[in-house]
Design a protein around this nucleic acid. Structure first.
Lengths: 415, 415
DNA sequence: AGGGGTTAGGAAAGGGGCTTTATAAAGTCC
DNA sequence: GGACTTTATAAAGCCCCTTTCCTAACCCCT
């Protein structure tokens, strides 16, 4: 059982301060102290650290009410670059961010069906990473790290992709393979947790103690933010909500079970909801999830009854599932994220809210907001980049160069 | 968002050391240091603190391999008493413990149907608490506190029972009512969390970072132990698993929803499972949950096919539900606790293990044990008493008498 | 232009925690 | 009886946060 040390407090505070600066750049030390609840002195030293690291810079002054003006600090956007890699079933998406987490460059590689060898995927990743670095015209030294999100179960310490259902991977030493092509520090995890971290740092979960980040994409997950940090579980596979049973003896899932959440509210599940309701619907683009979800979104805007019904049905399943999460965790906020949520947008969320409040207990429900993610682009990329950012900040706390007594010369002393 | 301070580390360590001493009394400082991962010096100071508090005593020495013998410490059983109160729908159960958490006295009061006024319940509690103190022949001063477990949603800070479905309570100021009759420090929470804390301190979850404690009684819950501590959620209602939907549009629950876990695996749910399978079964004692569950347990021992089938059906529901918890939390251990689990015992657990591994993802499942609670008596009482113990330990860390500059005399100084 | 008054920010001191190192205490073994 | 071991306590050091004090910087008013 890991014990907390006082250094962890420092790390958490460092994260907190940087988060706040990124969120509200430029800002003053005063504001930071108020927002984080830390003392002015502590904020000042943390700000000093970040200044030394060149992650932030002083950008001028702000009038105070009659006294010495407040010094303002802001993220030093050009102080470094972070790369986020989102490996999915059909594509590899890479984005390069500056330290303000603006996207400086993007690259996307299609993964053709059948391309399932780790080496093939790694090739795509390496190509795309090379591309974004070139596009952005960044010198390599300024890349602080590369975060990689890969579906399935990942051991982030050993860097092994223990199991990826899409490609039937078992214990692939992905980190080692990537290291051969990519010279930057690498951080590996899965999309569920990447998205949760993105929401925790930059999205709707920021500043919340307990939050659940529901990712709605091809797969489905529930990232758990507990006590201000990501809950990983004992083998880094917490949050695998997609294969929870929502309908006993329901639809067959590729995992082998029946009635998994994913089969009703994942993109393929939504397509099935549509097909069952209206088999010949023009909204349905077989073999193309993205197009079908987009068509549904468009249909909703046009008040198409079929689209509305499908979304309502989906929201009903989702609502029942999320109600379970609300009862269990009693979170401050449930964030709906990932591309399906982004596409279906606020109308979906409204239906979900409705459905959740039918199923959840009133008291926990009253304490919980259900909101749409605020993150505009691919949250898995952003989250992966955030892993790299966390990694860069972590190493600051590293014990700086262990002091050793100077080695005595092997030759006879001159005495 | 609450921030961790270095004092919290101290409190956690204090808990950890005392837990270990209670678990392995007598023990040496060396052993404690090894078990907790703390340095010898820290253990020594914490042990010193506990000795000063008279919660533990030195009980002799143990030979070391050729050096100074290890001093042994053990819980000072007579150093204080803790009282646990378990208020349930049909009874009030009170136990008085010594500091080794042995039961010194018990009292039980029946709550007749219709007795639903807070004052009536409080009367029962006061009577039973008085009784155990008398039985044990303890002087009042040595009672360190009284923990009270009451079903429903509880605000432990304000001491208000926000909602108790059994008696249709809404925002009853229970703590205030109890304070009028009971002079000891009071701690209020609900059975779900009481049982979880009992397992965390003294049961199968001890020393585990992440655990789920499933309580199977009339009601059903899932206490969440995350990062070595109880997860309470934002409004202290985390763990309300009993009203999660397990069968969409399933059995009607008293909460108004359909298909709640509780309606299938709570004691009344199990009775219904039995009735549906074999309406006229002699195992069924209508109106008496305890007798029916006992009859089922007996039936299983006699290989009664109906009993076996009912337990298997129940385990199937339970397995599906627990599989969801395993996927979500990725805990080290799932503990089945409370009286229904105790009654049905290992055969139930074996069936549950089987059912869970059919539903849960293989990787998280492989990392999770599913075990029966080791706690012999009423875990809610024990857990409630543990709240009192935690409370007593907490106040140690209290800033001891804020130093004030000595008040200057108002009269003119003698200078 | 030159003092108050006000606010920001840094430096120092203080309090709490944990660990490492040194010292004292209590045995065993030869 | 001395040397070696092992335990326990004391001392010193490091980390972290906060409080307090003081200087810096700016406003405004005279």
């Amino acid at each position: 059982m890991k014990r907390g040390t006082s250094r962890d407090i420092r790390t958490a505070n460092r994260y907190e301060v940087l988060r706040q600066i990124i969120a509200a750049s430029p800002t003053s030390r005063q504001e930071l102290a108020a927002a984080t609840g830390l003392s002015l002195a502590t904020v000042a030293t943390l700000v000093g650290e970040l200044l030394d690291l060149r992650m932030i810079t002083e950008v001028g002054f702000e009038d105070s009410a009659g006294g010495r003006p407040r010094g303002l600090v802001a993220v030093n956007a050009s102080g470094g670059a972070l790369i986020g890699v989102d490996i999915a079933e059909t594509y590899v998406h890479v984005e390069l961010f500056d330290l303000a987490l603006n996207v400086l460059a993007r690259a996307e590689e299609d993964v053709r069906p059948g391309e399932s060898l780790p080496e093939q995927l790694v090739g795509h990743v390496a190509a795309a990473v090379g591309s974004v670095v070139m596009q952005a015209g960044i010198e390599g030294a300024r890349v602080l790290g590369v975060g990689v999100s890969v579906p399935g179960q990942v051991n982030r310490d050993t860097g092994i992709a223990e199991y990826a259902p899409n490609w039937d991977w078992h214990d692939v030493p992905l980190l080692d393979l990537l290291t051969e092509h990519i010279a930057y520090p690498l951080y590996l995890d899965n999309p569920l947790r990447a998205v949760a971290v993105a929401e925790l740092w930059f999205g709707a979960a920021r500043g919340r103690g307990d939050a659940v980040v529901v990712t709605l994409g091809t797969g489905v997950g529930a990232g758990l933010v507990l006590g201000g940090g990501l809950h990983r579980g004992v083998s880094n596979s917490a949050g695998e909500w997609g294969h929870n049973t929502i309908v006993l003896d329901g639809r067959l899932c590729h995992c082998g079970n029946h009635g998994c959440v994913e089969t009703y509210v994942g993109a393929p599940g939504i397509m099935l909801n549509l097909r069952e309701l209206s088999p010949g619907s023009p909204l349905l683009h077989p073999e193309d999830q993205t197009a079908t979800i987009a068509a549904l979104a468009q249909g909703m805007r046009e008040q198409d009854p079929v689209a509305l019904k499908v979304v309502r049905d989906t929201a009903r399943y989702l609502g029942a599932g999320i109600a379970d999460l609300v009862n269990l965790f009693n979170p401050e906020v449930v964030v709906l994220s990932s591309w399906v949520a982004a596409a279906l947008g606020e109308p979906l969320v409204a239906e979900v809210r409705e459905a959740v409040s039918r199923h959840a207990l009133p008291r926990p429900m009253a304490a919980t907001e259900i909101v749409l993610s605020l993150i505009p682009s691919d949250p898995a990329c952003l989250g992966a980049a955030t892993f790299a950012l966390e990694g860069a900040l972590q190493s600051v706390g590293q014990r700086n160069a262990k002091r050793t007594t100077p080695a005595r010369s092997r030759t006879a002393p001159p005495s």
